[in-house]
Amino acid sequence: MQFMLFAWSAEGYFQKMPPAEAQAAIGAYSAFGEALRKENVLVSSNRLRPSGETTQVSIQNGKTRVLNGPYAETKEQLGGYFLIDVPDLDAAIAWAARCPGASHGTVEVRPIWTM
């Protein structure tokens, strides 16, 4: 089964740290990605640019409307995702807990709807 792990965390988490600590914090994410890869569960992953660079697009009455900022105004922002393939939800939750985002933000686990 495929699951999406969305990592929500306060932006500026890395920026607020002294450089050495920030490097270690980012290192923890790459170690997590590496562990996923080594265990053959990683399908894909991406880090997203800050939510300030986000736009919303919708069509209302035939007109395209563009707004700045992310759809959900939240204290923590969507900072990246890991798409994984594991046997069941328990396995997905176990990986989510290992994601560094779980300890400084929230990791949301969403099952993929296979067509």
């Binding site: 290192g27 923890a28 170690a31 997590f32 990605g33 590496e34 562990a35 996923l36 080594k38 807990a97 290992r98 560094p100 779980a102 300890s103 400084h104």
Partner: peptide, 11 residues
């Protein structure tokens, strides 16, 4: 070490 770090949930 890299693998151990990637598998550890406790910061």
């Amino acid at each position: 070490y890299e693998q151990a770090i990637g598998l550890e949930p406790d910061p």
